[in-house]
Amino acid sequence: MSFFKVANLGINFGGVVAVDKVSFEVRRGEVYTIIGPNGAGKTTIFNLIGLIYPATSGQIFLEDKPLTGSVPHRIAQLGIARTFQNIELFEHATVLQNLLIGRHRHRAASLWQELLFTPAVRRAELAAREAVEQVIDFLDLAKYRDSLVAGLPYGVRKVVELGRALATEPRLLLLDEPSSGLNPEETDDMAFWIEDIRRHLGVTVLMVEHDMNLVSRVSDRVLALNLGTVIAEGTPAEVQAHPAVIEAYLGKAA
């Protein structure tokens, strides 16, 4: 049984082929990275996995169960969480509230119980807070707990978004350019966290990333895309040395 599999995935935007017959498989517990120049279709693949765009062709499987044809919120309920390239947080809520929304998929009470705030709802809330506090501890967000997201610096917001995804207790974590906009120190922290997420939380990570230092440091395997098609797959070192990858980034040698 494969953990997560993408088979022949493709999408056209009005005749432009953005992703063309992309197939790959992510093994349980690994960090799998997709790299490629701008416009290679990396984020589009994430949006296809999240069902934000309907795929023109191909299939996506989580533990051999097809995801295509489902609806976006089901994806999260199945245990796939993601972050966004340009940060999509709930701006007018506090960090704590943002992380608590991450717990949404564990909601059990009915509307009537919530309107009356029955003891069961209170217990669930306490449990949710306990889980969220663990994420806050893990990512060192304690001092921002009650701040509004709108006022936080970019680097912190990036971490909050990671925390929100972790609060869902995902099985598969999709990180869309986790290091973009971060300074070297923050990138270093991010690398530590990604390693910890895999090692201590046992979460499988699928990542899109540009920073090759970060990629080689944390990834087990790398997939290189160019213009919507796969050009190489393998260990970070293998992919970096692959002639097609070098050509895609630097152009053809004269």
Binding site: A76, F84, E88, L89, F90, Q97, I101, A109, L111
Partner: peptide
């Protein structure tokens, strides 16, 4: 409770809310 937070999530970012399972 979770319902109220889901409302706030929809207010602030629909796409993010649905990716969180709302």
């Amino acid at each position: 409770s979770p319902t109220g937070r889901a409302f706030v999530a929809i207010r602030d970012s629909e796409i993010s809310a649905s990716c969180m399972g709302v």
